[in-house]
Design a protein around this nucleic acid. Sequence first.
RNA 1: GGCCUUAUCGUCUAACGGUUAGGACGGAGCCCUCUCAAGGCUCAAAUACGGGUUCGAUUCCCGUUAAGGCUACCA
Length: 482
Amino acid sequence: MSNVRVRFAPSPTGYLHVGGLRTALYNYLFARKQNGVFILRIEDTDRGRYVEGAEANLIQALKWAGLSYDEGPDVGGPMAPYRQSERIDMYRKHALQLVDEGKAYYAFDTAEELESMRKEQEKLRQTPKYDRRALKLTTEEVKAKLDAGIPHVVRLRVPDATTVAFDDIVRGHVEFATEQIDDQVLLKSDGYPTYHLANVVDDHLMQVSHVIRGEEWLSSTPKHVLLYQYFGWELPQFAHLPLLLNPDKSKLSKRQGDVAVEDYRAKGYLPPALVNFVALLGWNPGDEREIFSLEELIQEFSLERVGKSGAVFNLEKLDWMNFEHLRKIPDAQVLQMLRNVLADSEFAAKSFSDEYLRGVITAMRDRASFARDFVEKCPYFYARPEQYDQDVVKKRWKAESPAHLKQLAEEFSRLTDSAKESFEAVLHRTAESLHVKNAELIHPLRVAVSGMGAGPGLYDILHLLGKDEVINRIETAIERIH
RNA sequence: GGCCUUAUCGUCUAACGGUUAGGACGGAGCCCUCUCAAGGCUCAAAUACGGGUUCGAUUCCCGUUAAGGCUACCA
């Protein structure tokens, strides 16, 4: 048992950002490690940014990554609902409570008025901040405006001349002067809460023990702390995670590459690889291990080992991790992945036996970082070469190669099987009788059967293709390579 | 501009006052070898700068610089 309750609280903007994935992951790991509860809460309080299907997309991405949650909009839970749009009564009630207690107040300013106020402040080089003009209204005036149905918001009344402080698990002690804190809107004129209000109310009501979120929230945390104090609620622990960065060190964003989890999924990255990779962006186990399964990450994770500085999202290392994770996947499973890739390829119409494909997998294992590499890096396993790599031909195809290969084909034709060793023995014998080095036959033969200069050991290729196919390809190559 | 945060190889990072500043990705080279990989070995590569504190600073403090975040009736 544990009182740890954490949440991932994304705004459904259409897709899951890899930064969001990492935030979700750290919450998940912390919850699992502490035998706590992991909650998914949808922060959809901005009806202006409503995106059809965004929530389903988000859930699908989390599922793909393997991050299961104990409570959430689709699985329910004791503190339901988990969609903020379905909880607006609670926010309103709490906002009004603060108004009653003088800790928040109504404001009736229009967007235009606020805009010109801000412009004025900027002109005077002041910090843009609400000037509290609504506080000059008498209670009668406020009541009259309310009765007249004039659009209004509720703003937080930030105390003067004091500081708000809190201790962050990652950052340590942080302090803000209240002069710097704006009288934040709590309840918008459309009746929906802002993030700040909804977040605090929900975290309290859902008994969230640790707020683990991105560093972009650090600056608004004092507003949240103030709310907890105003409501008389116990403060959760805060842990503000370092940001994920573009190569130029700015906050990871679109336009500088892929940021959506689904992009990486589409590119063929394995869920455990992507998870492993983002886990190590801002956290490390303290020793030199780098490859972890989700289970292992749970065992090792601690918030104390989360770093403070932002981390650049480095694709090259991610590719390497994908390679490492791919090679851990058993053949049977890779076979299924390969079949999926094949079904989506130019070779979709052809059929191959499991045995054959297993052979390809064995041959290509050390050369594949992605499932698609089992097809893209060795198309010759699925069809005869349509062309021959000219650079390789130039380098390996000698004037006498056609004659050599012709003889080899003849020797091969006497073979009674397609064993690797049989091909090897015949090739050695032929080279000897021709008085050439094995390599003089191997290289041209490789080009002839594969069209390429790189790949698995030649005898593995020959064995897989089989005697008849090999002979056939040799004959074709002799005709077509010049 | 203001506030907040951050600062070790190109990148991800280790070193919680004493190390030849370690590892990984990437790069270079060598070995292996029928090619390409994989694997093994080796090399190049960092404590932003300036002051303190200390017998001793990557580590603690201050400043500078740089970078980032926030500065909405968005999250």
